[in-house]
Nucleic acid binder design. Structure first.
Lengths: 148, 148
DNA sequence: AATATCTAGTTGCAGTTGCAACTAGATAAA
DNA sequence: TTTATCTAGTTGCAACTGCAACTAGATATT
C-alpha cells in the first residue's frame, strides 16, 4: 500500500465515484420510466424480505441500507402509507418498532427486480468478465471494511 | 462477457454501490466537521479552475460534474451568493452565461483540497496497491464508457 | 423573411435529505 | 430507588433534488 497520493489514485477515485453515479442514475431512470418507486424503496423492502423472521427493527434497516435513522423513519412512513410495510410495537423494547413486509410489498419487490435485474446486466455485468467482477468485488470489499 | 446474471455479479454490484456511498459519506462528514461546504461545490469550482480560459458555460459544468441543468443553475446561485463565482453574459450566445471563478473561490478550493486529499488517502488509496488502483480505474472506466 | 424547432438557462412545486432538538423507554451508576 | 446516561425513533427547519413548465435566444425549414 502506498502512502503518497498519486495522480493515478485520484483518477481511479474519480472514476469509481462517477461509475457508481452513472449506474444508479441509469437504473433510477429505468425505474421511473416503468413508473416504479426509487431504488431506496427496493433496498429496504429487500432487507426485510430477506429475514427469516420476516421482520426487522428500524435501526437494523438503517445499518443495512446505510440510511440515517431519521431517513429510515420517514422512508418507512411512505412505505407504510403505500401499504408496503407495517410497523408493530416491539415487545422486548417498547421504544422500538418491528417492521414487516406486506403481501403487496413483496409483489412490488418482484416487479422492481425485473427492471433492476435488467439494468444490472445491461449497465454492469455485461461489460465485465467473471474474473473482473470478482476483482471488483474484492477491491470494493476492502474499501468498505476499512473505516480509515 | 457473460450474459447471465450471477450471484457474484449481484454481490459485486452491491459492493460497488456501497463502497462509493461510504467513501462519499466519510469525506462529506470530514468536510462538514471542518466547516466546509459539500463536495459538489468543490467539483464545480475545480472544473472551472481547470480551464485555461478560466471560464465555463453552465451546460459544460453540468456535463462534467454530472448535474442536471436546473441543479447547476441553482448551485451556481449559491456559489455566486457566496462570492465564489461570477456569471457573465456570453457574447457568442446571449442565452448563456460564462461562469468564472473568483479569488475567494480559488482560496476555498485550496482549503477544501486539504481535507479532501486526506480523505482520499485515508479511505481509498491507503488500502490499495498501485496495481489495484490501476485495475479499479480500468474496470470503472469500462462501466462509464458503456451506456448500455 | 416567416415559421417551426431546438437549446441554454430559470423557476414553482413536491419530494427527499441532513442537522438539531425532541420524546420515551432502557441501561448504568449513586 | 433515584438520578444520570444512553439508545430508538420522530419531527421542524433549511437545504437540495427531480420534474414539468416556462422565457429567451439560436438554428433549421419553407
Amino acid at each position: 500500500m502506498n502512502a503518497k497520493l498519486t495522480q493515478a489514485a485520484i483518477e481511479s477515485w474519480a472514476r469509481l465515484i462517477r461509475a457508481q453515479q452513472l449506474l444508479i442514475e441509469r437504473v433510477e431512470s429505468d425505474l421511473t420510466a416503468a413508473e416504479l418507486p426509487p431504488l431506496a424503496w427496493y433496498d429496504v423492502l429487500l432487507e426485510i424480505n430477506r429475514e427469516d423472521s420476516g421482520q426487522l427493527r428500524q435501526f437494523e434497516i438503517g445499518d443495512k441500507v446505510l440510511l440515517s435513522k431519521y431517513n429510515v423513519s420517514r422512508l418507512l412512513d411512505r412505505l407504510e402509507n403505500e401499504g408496503l410495510v407495517e410497523r408493530q410495537r416491539c415487545e422486548q423494547d417498547r421504544r422500538g418498532a418491528n417492521v414487516i413486509i406486506t403481501k403487496s410489498g413483496k409483489a412490488l419487490l418482484k416487479k422492481m427486480w425485473v427492471v433492476y435485474e435488467r439494468g444490472l446486466e445491461q449497465y454492469f455485468s455485461r461489460h465485465l468478465s467473471k474474473q473482473e467482477i470478482e476483482q471488483l468485488a474484492v477491491l470494493t470489499a476492502r474499501l468498505i471494511e476499512n473505516p480509515d
